[in-house]
Design a protein around this nucleic acid. Structure first.
Lengths: 146, 146
DNA sequence: GTTATATTAATGCAACTGCATCTACATAGG
DNA sequence: CCTATGTAGATGCAGTTGCATTAATATAAC
């Protein structure tokens, strides 16, 4: 039978998690901001909408993927629309709903964000972890998520 | 010489980090809120101030430990003072500064938060990771932090 | 069809955050 | 002493978030 982890190990994990998250997030946001690009949260939304293609996608379907509450998503979409990156279209078959579509400008901005996002993140991780450690850490993190 | 981790492993790590952080944070905040206790951010501040004892502590000294910007800390302290959990006292030798002290009520609330915090966090982690995995994960996270 | 319940999305309001700036005091250089 | 620069902390404002509620439509029960 397995022993329980001592509380201090769990708290070391927890504080490490918080700090690593804050550190990486800050690096990415700073890099994006330095290039005059939108915040990271927009990237994920634009990407999910872009993947939906000509079909479009319903807001409620984005909710789980984006880890946002309903009103948070509603307002994020509102901003994306106002910025001209996303279009709302009526939803055939459900009068309550809407289909979201990426505009050309939205695609352009998403594409511009990607290399900044990617190089900042991989740069920061590779500076500190070997390939093997990265894989191990990713695997353990998945286990932590159940 | 070591190989670079493939980008997908780094992104798996990154999304795992975000989700694990959000998941644990949400559990703790929910548990605290369910007991009518203040948010998690208050705990750390109260605890640091409590550790400072009768000496008290200067706000700028809390900044690094609490991972807050200067104005964020200023306002957190403002709320803690208004709630009656913290006292500001004049700072001998530096007219700009102040010394922060925990009140009895502050200590009581901090103490009430602890078991909720602790059991929620350890419960969530122990449900998914063995002791060995927890230690490994904590160690790798430290490495990620440089 | 009518009523009850559920789902999609938006919104009023208060609290909170980020950014830039400001005030007050401290320290250094002349 | 006086001025210049640095540091501690607060704050105005605009933008964002959380919570609760609302509006509109859909589905289920009768």
């Amino acid at each position: 039978m397995s022993l329980k982890a001592p509380s201090h190990a769990i708290f070391a994990l927890w504080t490490g998690l918080i700090r690593a998250n804050a550190d990486l997030q800050a690096r990415i946001e700073t890099a994006l901001q330095a290039k005059g690009l939108p915040p990271l949260a927009w990237y994920d939304a634009l990407w999910e909408i872009e993947k939906a293609g000509t079909e479009g996608i319903r807001p409620f379907a984005l909710q789980d993927r984006l880890l946002l509450p309903q009103y948070g998503l509603s307002r994020l979409i509102e901003r994306l629309v106002k910025a001209g990156y996303v279009e709302r279209r009526a939803c055939a078959g459900d009068g309550r709903g809407q289909m979201l579509h990426l505009t050309g400008e939205g695609a352009r901005v998403r594409a511009a964000m990607w290399p900044v996002y990617e190089t900042t993140l991989t740069g920061a991780v590779e500076a500190r972890l070997s390939a093997a450690e990265t894989v191990d850490l990713a695997r353990l993190m998945q286990r932590l998520l159940g």
